[in-house]
Design a protein around this nucleic acid. Sequence first.
DNA 1: AGGCATCTACGACGTCCGTCGTTGACAGTT
DNA 2: AACTGTCAACGACGGACGTCGTAGATGCCT
Lengths: 130, 130
Amino acid sequence: MTPVPPQPTRAELAILRVLWQLGPSTVRRVHESLRDTQDKDTGYTTVLKLLQNMTEKGLVQRDESERTHVYEAALSQKRTQRDLLRDLMDRAFGGSASSVVAQALSMKRASAEELAEIRKLLDEHERRGK
Amino acid sequence: MTPVPPQPTRAELAILRVLWQLGPSTVRRVHESLRDTQDKDTGYTTVLKLLQNMTEKGLVQRDESERTHVYEAALSQKRTQRDLLRDLMDRAFGGSASSVVAQALSMKRASAEELAEIRKLLDEHERRGK
DNA sequence: AGGCATCTACGACGTCCGTCGTTGACAGTT
DNA sequence: AACTGTCAACGACGGACGTCGTAGATGCCT
């Protein structure tokens, strides 16, 4: 009965994104990847501490068989995205999925390419729902 | 030169939702509305303090002409929703609007009614984009 | 005028979060 | 064996957040 891990904080989510992209990684790898991607510059021990906390919370799993530990995301990216979006949907959109979509469409980043993708998703969803 | 107010925290957002629903309100009205809606039970002075902080941050505007102050949301609901969704989209979805929509659709709450609404939005958006 | 209710302001406190320094263990190098 | 570098662990700290108690001002009622 593993209790559901709490939602990741901002910094924790940034780390999870690295783990999802790279797969199981050491602290050093995560730190360097953040160094490249991120604007901010976090220290090595900061990343270590975060990962220790995340292990405690159940957000990541740690392989300690070797001296240099290897961390892996405990939940899939999709699952985490779903949880986070659900939370925001409840808190800010009154639980309305269509409101969320409306706002998503109103953004400049909803390019033509993305619109086609969205329409495809909608068709699939409808077909499956039948 | 009003700087853009920072994003509201969880508790602040709950208050903003009340203000959007009720319009300009006193601390008491906000407190009572929260008492009805919310599961949690926050004290009067807590709500007052929150609203004072929010005034400081520029999230709300305060009318002090009367002894009992009246608070009003500084930004529209849509604008705030957009900002919050943008933030989450960047942090968790790599800035992809279609990923957000995909997740939104995968939720049980995307009812048939909502699906129709979403499709309508999509049509309008496409027509307008032409 | 006295007393009660209401309201704002202020300060305090516990918690979480992100940050980092230091320490001690371990490993490879010369 | 001594040195150098890497690693995990731990403690500390400043800031934000949400919480509330208390004080002081103001208004109302009798």
